[in-house]
Each structure stands twice: as structure tokens, then as C-alpha cells.
């Protein structure tokens, strides 16, 4: 039987028309400056606004501002962004890439451009960027090849609240030596003979000297503060229940695992365990921590 779709023909076609566009007098001057690695804006003194891309008339008061050029810095700040993840033939960067609105320092009207030099997940408004000029001029806005993050973080902060997930864990392991115990006695002022006097210790239920409980307990500090969540974390509460003694020479592993995300406060609860080389649990507990906030601008 003949269907309505039989003997149908589809014709391939293409619209392709080379063009020449006049950039305008004002636009031309902007593009010529750009070729010389200078970003120029036009200022309306009346409205106290600097426009990029430039325009002959102020869009607010319609004053002719075409001669009132100001040279801007080759730097700016991101006022908005998106991450382009689909591919189209006209794109000049390979997806995924960041397309942002960038307010050039000294101007009031952000321009759209590509931002590189920052992980996609760390992208944010407020990022300081600098223009990276193209090696070859095309006399378009692409004489700025892209903008690059202009922030060198002094420190790599740990996981933020949003990056943390329940089940993430980290640990730190260290062998507790006699030296550690003696130094800890000095640090804490706890010269209890059960830690320092072998003869006394023989008479205790442990039969030999043991480490201060707070000594293995303290091994959780490098986990919370330097690994998970990591730098920038504030510990709000740490609880610990001792289950077994730590003898000199024991190798203690302190482990923290994210057990709960407290959305309201944006705090995280962590389950803590301390184990020795035999796999015995030395102590258990929990911690409440405030993970680092995203990197502040000045860092």
C-alpha cells in the first residue's frame, strides 16, 4: 500500500554568503586600539558611564560621546557566567568552556568573552581576570583571545560544603614513639607516671607505660584541618570515647568520614575512628566542623 511518506524527496541545501561589514567609525577606532593591545571605552561625562563595546551616543542621555575615549586596563571582573557544554561549529573554544560577562576595569558595561585558567567547578562571579591578546589580529573582539583568571591563590583551600558528600573519608597514620609521649607530657604538663615511669606503670592494669589518650586523639587534627574538609576548616566540636590503650610503638590511624550534611548551618558532621596496627579500635567519636567557604577574592 502506498503511504503518504513514499516517494518523498529531501533536498540538501546551505546558506553561505561571504560578507563584508563596516565596523563604523567608532567601532573601527575601538578595533584598531585592540589590535595595539589597548582596550578603549567611550565615556559619557553627563551620565558618568563608560561604554564597552563603544558607541557614538550615550544610550541613556543620547549625548554624542564619540570623542571622549578613555583607555581602560586590560583587566576586569566577572559579573556573570555560564559553562557552554554543547558543540557548535561557530565556537572558538572547545566545550566545555566558560563564557562570562566581564566588566573591564574602568568601564560600566560588561562584555561577553571566554574565560580560561580556572577549573569549571571553581568558576564564580567576582573572579578577577586579565585579557590575553591573540597572537594574530583578526580585527574583531577576538584580538582578545580570552580572559584568564588573574587570581593566584596563596593557599589551596579544602572542600567546601557543596563539594562534600556523605561517605567521603580521609585518614592520617603515625607511629607513636616514646619521644612523642615525653614531648606531649611537656606540652600538656601531664607528667602522670603511668605515661613516664615504667616501674609505676607495671602496677597499673596496662602493665606498661601507655600514651596520653589525647595524643592519638590529636591525630584527627591533620585529617580535619588538612585533608577532609581540609585547609580553612573550623572544628566546632570533637567528641571521643577511648576504647583501648595506645602503647609505645603502636601505629595509630585516625579516620574521619562525612556522616551528615547540615544544610541549615552548612556544617558537616564527621564520624571519627582511631585504630591501631592490629585493626583494633582505639577510640571512636564524632566531630562537627565548618568547612571552608569558597576562596575570598583577595586571596
Amino acid at each position: 500500500m502506498q503511504s503518504v511518506k513514499d516517494d518523498c524527496f529531501i533536498v540538501e541545501g546551505k546558506l553561505a554568503l561571504p560578507y563584508q561589514y563596516f565596523a563604523g567609525r567608532t567601532g573601527s577606532r575601538f578595533l584598531i586600539s585592540l589590535r595595539d593591545k589597548k582596550i578603549m571605552g567611550l565615556k559619557c561625562d553627563k551620565c558618568n558611564r563608560v561604554f564597552v563595546p563603544p558607541r557614538t551616543l550615550c544610550e541613556q542621555c543620547f549625548s554624542n560621546i564619540s570623542e571622549n575615549w578613555v583607555e581602560l586596563k586590560n583587566k576586569g571582573i566577572v559579573t556573570g557566567f555560564t559553562i557552554v557544554r554543547y558543540e557548535e561549529p561557530y565556537q572558538t573554544a572547545k566545550p566545555p568552556y566558560i563564557l562570562a560577562l566581564i566588566k573591564i576595569s574602568g568601564s560600566d558595561t560588561p562584555i561577553a568573552h571566554i574565560v580560561k585558567g580556572i577549573p569549571l567547578s571553581k568558576m564564580r562571579t567576582g573572579l578577577k581576570v586579565k585579557a590575553v591578546f591573540a597572537k594574530k589580529s583578526t580585527s574583531t573582539i577576538m584580538d582578545i583571545d580570552h580572559f584568564r583568571s588573574d587570581e593566584k591563590p596563596k593557599f589551596e583551600l579544602g572542600f567546601t560544603y557543596d563539594e562534600l558528600e556523605v561517605g567521603m573519608s580521609a585518614s592520617f597514620t603515625k607511629t607513636i614513639s616514646e619521644t612523642d609521649v615525653y614531648l606531649f607530657a611537656g606540652i600538656s604538663g601531664d607528667f602522670n607516671p603511668m605515661h613516664l615511669n615504667e616501674e609505676f606503670a607495671k602496677a597499673t592494669p596496662f602493665g606498661t607505660r601507655i600514651a596520653h589518650g589525647a595524643l592519638p586523639q590529636s591525630l584527627i587534627a591533620p585529617v580535619l584541618g588538612m585533608k577532609l574538609p581540609g585547609l580553612g576548616t573550623v572544628a566546632l566540636e570533637i567528641t571521643c570515647r577511648f576504647k583501648a590503650p595506645t602503647y609505645f610503638g603502636d601505629t595509630i590511624t585516625a579516620t574521619g568520614e562525612v556522616s551528615e550534611k547540615i544544610e541549615k548551618k552548612r556544617w558537616v558532621r564527621m564520624a571519627l575512628t582511631w585504630t591501631n596496627q592490629k585493626g583494633e579500635i582505639v577510640a571512636e567519636g564524632s566531630a562537627l566542623v565548618m568547612p571552608p567557604a569558597p576562596m575570598p577574592q583577595e586571596m
Partner: peptide, 22 residues
């Protein structure tokens, strides 16, 4: 426009992404 926005790869979907974020 062919000078300032088309070369950086703008289209309505990208523009919407910028607006959605804001």
C-alpha cells in the same frame, strides 16, 4: 553582531545560560 558578540560564540542558549545564572 559580527564584531563584538558573534565572534565569541554567542547564541540564544548561551545568553539564556548567563541570564539563568544571574
Amino acid at each position: 553582531d559580527p564584531f563584538y558578540t558573534r565572534p565569541v560564540g554567542m547564541d540564544f542558549c548561551v545568553a539564556a545560560g548567563l541570564q539563568a545564572q544571574a
